[in-house]
Design a binder for these strands. Structure first.
Lengths: 214, 214
DNA sequence: TAGATTGTTAATCGATTAACAATC
DNA sequence: TAGATTGTTAATCGATTAACAATC
């Protein structure tokens, strides 16, 4: 049950993006030195991270680009597409529905849910919007395991509860509130304010430092 | 130049959200024990994290909720609103333009930019969309420091280069590609695939474990 | 071959956690 | 007062980095 560290897990998609762009440029072999330089990190860290995929390289030559790509995709389970529901078809929800790119990452959104009668029954980016009242029932019947949660924060915990009760095993939560994990359910909280906080704090710190110099 | 750790910086907005909801419930004092329990982490970690804000608590009583809120907001520099440009008014860009909530976090998007003639000149959620050809010039003239980058990955590095050349000091990058930081510029890469990778890997791992038990 | 790169083992560094005196 | 909570110092844990033999 050796668990992979969160930082490593987070870096793997970055390597994948780079590797895919290298593959497009018909690059066959790549060294950890090059990957590291390209992403501005240390080569030894790249080597340690890639170790988890089980892909082995050749001394002097490096890794076969396509092997690494396959290895990372398999490791993240992006080769198995999963059906998912998206709940809350607001601005952000619609944007996610419209972004086809997530299919590449194993995410296949098959329906949207909302409580707004003007939205229910409509189709957005080819995906039908259903009544949120039917959510629990449909999760059970269709055995959907994955949910994208893009409702306002005030509704998020309640809806999460309903979904978990109905059999949802993983929630990708975009609502600006923390949803507690429980046994047997995986929650990934995407906090944009978190990310913005890092940015604004560092920017102000940097500006302070510059003015100190003067 | 004591620098705050990234994990701490990331947790601060979580505390803030919780504290604000407590304030709405007219709660005056809060202990780190309660915060920790509410967010599913350790009390000692909360205490250590809150230390960076400089806010002090009272033994036995805890912290004054409103003091902590002010402390975190000040620390993240969310009390100083900053003018920002958003580049790339696609689905995600529009969603971000439409979300008023970021004003609360010091982000004031004053204009959008795109290269699509059908979008240029229009107004989305009250914000005017301008020609991307004018981007560099306007950054200089208006002395804008912050940019939200929501263009397709292929254009991101080039546009980032233009922006930095024109004087942008912080980029909140949503494009699915890594933009390298350079001296004097803060980059925060929001990688949704990263987040999705953590979720899908853990979900598949969990399912494996369950089937092992059987 | 010579030299670059891998993979592994050990050392370092930093974040988290534990312990406990101070305090209201 | 008694007991809960803070704030600080020390211990632990885990991730990153360094060192180096193996290898093509």
């Amino acid at each position: 049950m050796e668990s992979v560290s969160l930082p490593t897990l987070r870096r793997l998609p970055k390597y994948l993006m780079l590797l895919q762009s290298l593959e497009q440029q018909r690059v066959i072999y790549v060294s950890t030195t090059l990957i590291a330089h390209e992403l501005g990190i240390e080569a030894i860290q790249v080597r340690k991270d890639l170790e988890v995929t089980g892909v082995v390289g050749k001394p002097k030559v490096g890794f076969v680009v396509s092997d690494l790509i396959q290895g990372i995709i398999r490791f993240l389970n992006w080769d198995n597409r999963r059906e998912a529901f998206l709940i809350g078809v607001g601005a952000l929800g619609s944007a996610i529905l419209g972004y086809q790119g997530f299919r590449e990452f194993g995410l296949d959104i098959i329906a949207g849910f909302d409580n707004d009668p003007r939205k229910i029954g409509k189709t957005i980016h080819g995906i039908e919007i259903l009544d949120i009242a039917k959510l629990g029932n449909l999760i059970e019947r269709m055995k959907v395991r994955l949910a994208v949660l893009t409702v306002p924060a005030a509704f998020a915990p309640e809806i999460a509860g309903i979904m978990i009760f109905s059999g949802i095993k993983a929630i990708w939560n975009f609502a600006p509130c923390h949803i507690k994990a429980r046994e047997g359910v995986v929650i990934e909280n995407v906090s944009l304010s978190q990310s913005l906080g890092v940015l604004t704090h560092r920017l102000s710190k940097m500006e302070q430092n510059y003015s100190e110099v003067i």
